[in-house]
Simulated assay, not measured.
Amino acid sequence: MPDGWPREDAPFTSATDGVAKAVEQAKELAGDGDVAIATPSITRQCLNLGLIDVIAVDLVPVLLGKGVPFFSGLDGTPTKLDTPTVVEADGVTHLHYRVRH
C-alpha cells in the first residue's frame, strides 16, 4: 500500500490476487456505481479477460509524441466496438464506446 494510505478522505483497497479478482472486488465495493480502469497495462488485461463494457476516450488537441499505447498487445483482436456516443466540449471531445462481447 502506498505511503500515507489509507486516508479517510480517499479510501484505498489493495488487491493482490490478479486483475480479475481486483475488478470483482471493485464491483462489489461500487454497488450500483461504475468501476473505472485507468492504466494501459490494466486496461489491456481487462479487455483480454472480457471485463470491460465501455471504453471512454477523451480526445484533446495535443500531440505528445511519446507515451504508452493503451490498446497494443490485445488478445483476440480485433475488439469490436459500437458506434460511439460523442460529447463535444471546449478543448475536448468525449468518446464512449460500448464493447461488443
Score class of each variant (00 low, 15 high):
residue 1 M to L: 08
residue 2 P to Q: 14
residue 3 D to K: 11
residue 4 G to T: 12
residue 4 G to Y: 05
residue 9 D to C: 08
residue 10 A to K: 15
residue 10 A to P: 00
residue 13 T to M: 14
residue 15 A to L: 11
residue 17 D to F: 08
residue 17 D to N: 15
residue 18 G to R: 10
residue 19 V to E: 00
residue 19 V to W: 06
residue 22 A to T: 01
residue 22 A to K: 04
residue 23 V to C: 02
residue 24 E to N: 08
residue 25 Q to W: 04
residue 25 Q to S: 11
residue 27 K to A: 05
residue 28 E to M: 12
residue 29 L to H: 04
residue 29 L to Y: 00
residue 29 L to I: 14
residue 30 A to K: 10
residue 33 G to M: 02
residue 34 D to V: 10
residue 34 D to Q: 13
residue 35 V to W: 02
residue 36 A to R: 12
residue 36 A to L: 13
residue 37 I to Q: 04
residue 38 A to V: 10
residue 38 A to W: 09
residue 40 P to Q: 07
residue 40 P to G: 03
residue 40 P to D: 00
residue 40 P to K: 00
residue 41 S to I: 04
residue 42 I to Y: 04
residue 42 I to P: 00
residue 42 I to W: 01
residue 43 T to W: 02
residue 43 T to E: 05
residue 43 T to I: 03
residue 44 R to E: 05
residue 45 Q to F: 01
residue 45 Q to R: 01
residue 46 C to Y: 03
residue 46 C to S: 11
residue 47 L to M: 06
residue 47 L to W: 02
residue 49 L to E: 12
residue 50 G to V: 08
residue 52 I to Y: 02
residue 52 I to A: 11
residue 53 D to K: 07
residue 53 D to Y: 00
residue 54 V to T: 13
residue 54 V to F: 12
residue 54 V to D: 04
residue 54 V to E: 14
residue 56 A to P: 00
residue 56 A to S: 06
residue 56 A to Y: 09
residue 57 V to A: 11
residue 58 D to N: 15
residue 58 D to M: 10
residue 60 V to H: 07
residue 61 P to S: 10
residue 62 V to F: 09
residue 63 L to F: 13
residue 63 L to H: 12
residue 64 L to N: 10
residue 65 G to N: 05
residue 65 G to K: 08
residue 65 G to M: 02
residue 66 K to E: 14
residue 66 K to P: 00
residue 68 V to I: 15
residue 70 F to H: 12
residue 71 F to V: 06
residue 72 S to V: 05
residue 72 S to A: 11
residue 74 L to F: 03
residue 75 D to P: 03
residue 76 G to W: 00
residue 76 G to K: 13
residue 77 T to K: 14
residue 77 T to V: 12
residue 77 T to Y: 14
residue 77 T to P: 09
residue 78 P to Q: 05
residue 79 T to E: 02
residue 79 T to Y: 12
residue 80 K to H: 14
residue 80 K to N: 13
residue 80 K to W: 10
residue 80 K to I: 10
residue 80 K to E: 15
residue 80 K to T: 12
residue 81 L to K: 07
residue 82 D to R: 14
residue 84 P to E: 06
residue 84 P to D: 08
residue 84 P to N: 05
residue 85 T to Q: 15
residue 86 V to F: 07
residue 87 V to N: 10
residue 87 V to E: 08
residue 87 V to K: 15
residue 89 A to F: 04
residue 90 D to H: 13
residue 90 D to G: 09
residue 90 D to M: 09
residue 91 G to S: 00
residue 92 V to Y: 04
residue 92 V to T: 02
residue 93 T to A: 13
residue 93 T to C: 06
residue 93 T to R: 05
residue 93 T to K: 03
residue 94 H to D: 06
residue 94 H to K: 13
residue 94 H to Q: 10
residue 95 L to H: 07
residue 95 L to N: 05
residue 95 L to Y: 15
residue 96 H to Y: 15
residue 97 Y to M: 07
residue 98 R to H: 04
residue 98 R to I: 05
residue 98 R to L: 07
residue 99 V to M: 04
residue 99 V to R: 07
residue 100 R to H: 06
residue 100 R to S: 09
residue 101 H to K: 15
residue 101 H to P: 01
residue 101 H to W: 03
